[in-house]
């Protein structure tokens, strides 16, 4: 049992650590670093692995855990947000020059961040290459409903990313 759990974790992290990290990046809001969330996700996956039933693919199951952990952490952070002092702003002395790739990435993450929680989870699973069938099984809605929602989400995301012409 223990050996099986260890080998599942090894396989998962070898093949999907970048995907799990990308999920963490979407939810990391300053001062939460993606690395902090990534650690939480690994610990939660380790705790939950004895209960993994193999009715979903291992990585699909792990993505849903990552989404749950990150979403919970962000909600906790947002609650604390009431205590933030808006009058205080910390401005870096010199802003690093961002290249085009960084700007595109930032814009994509911002637009994903603007989506509603359920929409955000679906688009992340879609971008990670999950089929509508798998997305339906982990999100508890039908495959047809996923297709309808995805059409709407894609439209929103494209609108957010496309500069509006005057």
């Amino acid at each position: 049992m223990q050996e099986q759990i260890e080998s599942q974790l090894k396989r998962l992290l070898n093949d999907h650590k970048q995907s799990l990290y990308r999920i963490c990046k979407v939810y990391a809001v300053n001062p939460m670093e993606p690395k902090d969330l990534f650690q939480e996700v690994i610990i939660e996956i380790w705790r939950a692995l004895p209960r993994y039933k193999e009715d979903a693919k291992l990585h699909t199951w792990a993505y849903t855990i990552a989404l749950r952990v990150c979403s919970r952490k962000k909600a906790q952070y947002d609650k604390k947000d009431n205590l933030r002092l808006n009058a205080l702003t910390v401005i870096p002395v010199s802003l690093p020059q961002e290249d085009e790739v960084q700007e595109r990435t930032k814009a994509l993450y911002q637009c994903i961040g603007h989506l509603a929680e359920k929409e955000r989870q679906l688009i992340i699973l879609h971008l990670e290459g999950l089929a509508y069938r798998d997305m339906a099984s982990v999100s508890g809605i039908t495959e047809n409903h996923v297709a309808v929602k995805m059409k709407r989400i894609r439209k929103k995301l494209l609108a957010c990313l496309t500069p509006k012409s005057k």
């Binding site: 260890e6 974790l9 090894k10 992290l13 070898n14 650590k17 970048q18 995907s19 990290y21 990308r22 990046k25 993606p34 990534f38 690994i42 790739v101 960084q102 595109r104 990435t105 994509l108 993450y109 971008l127 894609r154 995301l157 494209l158 990313l161 496309t162």
Partner: peptide
Amino acid sequence: QLWNTIQHVWNESANDVTLELQIDELI
């Protein structure tokens, strides 16, 4: 075309870091 670009940007978006995991030590 735009969607393909989005997918590409997403796939590349974790490449700004190297995730080094010493798996045996981690376990």
